[in-house]
Design a protein around this nucleic acid. Sequence first.
DNA 1: TGTTAAACGAGACGGTACGTCTAGTCTTGCG
DNA 2: CGCAAGACTAGACGTACCGTCTCGTTTAACA
Lengths: 197, 197, 197, 197
Amino acid sequence: MRDTVVMTARQHTGRRRNEAARQAILDSAVNLLRSYDAAAVSVDAIAQDAGVSKQTIYRWWPSKGAVLLEALLDRARVIAPTPDTGDLEADLRLFLINTFEGVADSRPVLLGVLREALVDTDAMTLLAKFAAHRRAALMQIVAQARQRGESLEKTTAALVVDQAFGLLWYRLIFGNATLHKRTATKLARVAVIQLRA
Amino acid sequence: MRDTVVMTARQHTGRRRNEAARQAILDSAVNLLRSYDAAAVSVDAIAQDAGVSKQTIYRWWPSKGAVLLEALLDRARVIAPTPDTGDLEADLRLFLINTFEGVADSRPVLLGVLREALVDTDAMTLLAKFAAHRRAALMQIVAQARQRGESLEKTTAALVVDQAFGLLWYRLIFGNATLHKRTATKLARVAVIQLRA
Amino acid sequence: MRDTVVMTARQHTGRRRNEAARQAILDSAVNLLRSYDAAAVSVDAIAQDAGVSKQTIYRWWPSKGAVLLEALLDRARVIAPTPDTGDLEADLRLFLINTFEGVADSRPVLLGVLREALVDTDAMTLLAKFAAHRRAALMQIVAQARQRGESLEKTTAALVVDQAFGLLWYRLIFGNATLHKRTATKLARVAVIQLRA
Amino acid sequence: MRDTVVMTARQHTGRRRNEAARQAILDSAVNLLRSYDAAAVSVDAIAQDAGVSKQTIYRWWPSKGAVLLEALLDRARVIAPTPDTGDLEADLRLFLINTFEGVADSRPVLLGVLREALVDTDAMTLLAKFAAHRRAALMQIVAQARQRGESLEKTTAALVVDQAFGLLWYRLIFGNATLHKRTATKLARVAVIQLRA
DNA sequence: TGTTAAACGAGACGGTACGTCTAGTCTTGCG
DNA sequence: CGCAAGACTAGACGTACCGTCTCGTTTAACA
């Protein structure tokens, strides 16, 4: 679809994996998740849009969910780095602002991945791993503060982390409120209050 | 009928909706969601398990998601009442404990509903409405405290509410931590701290 | 449908069968068979069009096919009388002309009945009985000639009769040629030749 | 070979149609039509009996009727060849005997096809085409005689042909008389009389 | 320079579920 | 009891999608 006009068709790469095809697949996955109403993202559609055979998809990914997840990660500004400014609230604020921003325009992708994960156990495993990874990143910020001498309870930290990502997912799913920079700022502030209480 | 002069809303004639069938359908929906691997909850399966024709399901619900959602609500010990003890933290604690308890053994049902909602727009509308209703109940607790004279910011309240339900859904989805009574207690405590800060 | 504007609704007749309802049902059956694409003649449609409950249909007829068949017979100019002019060819000609004429604008009805008969054994029994009746009428013409002294073989007569009605149904079904008055005339002529050979 | 010629058409890629599946489907269609009460020939039943997915049927045929028709043709001992013995009556006799024989044990199949054709327009189109083909074959026999110098009217020929096939279908449908070899012989004789009259 | 084997496109296949449609039965309350 | 309204069971219909399975082609790497 995208290729019809300009490109002279992807080259075969013979025995080696065709990186262009991989990219085209991930692009198509994201595009379809974004453009259509979420439900309409079938593997056939991805394959067709990417100008790729369905088999090529299933050669490299075990399921649709896995494709979507990799598409998410590949694209993911979602993945905010762990800052270390020496100030707990500042670190939290930066992390959350980055995360919220990255997530904002990936909403359909994230929800698509979640949907698939709720259907397919394997996909859920992958997504859960990703979520764990993100929690670890946020925990790391608290750990840094603890290493600087602050006395912060570990149980509380776990709660705060889940509250933060919970807020994120909750609003992504239900769309009841936005995930602005201001929200992130406020969230960082109250998180610090909780942690130090 | 056509002859009668003043029509005060047509009398119901014809066979009435079979309430037993309705209950059987909702029961089966819940049972299947609970017992099997989530994916196996097909409309055919529900119909068969309920000893009902598929048509009877589609006569009363627009889609599978709608059935699951109603099953959820129907059963919902999920739906905790809004307590009013005169103490903010106590109210929050009670509400959250009840909510967590109700949710605990409904996990497969809730995730099934969520899955369907992510596929089916109508189902999502319904689920979102339900979620809004629950948020309102929690907000009500804060409003009660405000009426007792406490000065609590509304924006913060909204954030705290979404954090609480966010935590709930996040842990339901990813299963990374449980939703104990202790968690609810702790959550209530930190929520109060946030609100009063 | 027909009734909405003018009629003031059929009266209930209490314990006795409502003849108006019977007529309305047969009318609707024929109308629907004629107007729509044959396939759309459901019992619900007939009931609705006749302003009648489905149960009323099934109270008096065993199946849809039976309704259609009775509708056919009721309406049936199809049912040509057995003429007796004293001349074999003239009798045949008259009978066939009448039959063809009656059949011409009942094509959708006849095909509808046939369709139903091919699905429903009971309906087929009824239709076969009707067909036998019609064959008997045509045989009667030959019998009359025989009584006038003509020597006509019975086996041949049976063949000629089936050829005539066969032609009729064949052309009704496949629509490959029309059933004009001229066709009837010609058919009568060749039939006589066959019979006297 | 196919390769030697200049190929303008696109090369076939992809998995090729499974001929065994096609055969199995047609076999099952015929078997079910024969064995069960006509009505029980559902697409699901055919698919199951053939060990084939329903989608595979719908991939290749537009409707159930189309499958049944092809099953009929595929099997068709129905399709008698056009003989050319140099004698009109002999040719007719041979053709009709063959046709009757072929038709005899295909009765359920033929009626099944007819039933479907009366429901489904596409199927009717196919069946009508088949019928036209058969009429042409019979007409051919008359044409041969005309070429040998016999003066046979064309209009009469058309009538005779429709009478013959009409007889065939009429008796198939109503089962009022059999389609013996003797019937065919007699039919050929009277047909010749008609044609030469 | 061939030969081999992985990667690829196309696309058929089995399976499972969806939501729709009918036939025929059953139930309720009015007349 | 006849009737209108209309819910109910049973089961077929045709569609959509998943993940698997050929085919025949392309090309990197090896012989």
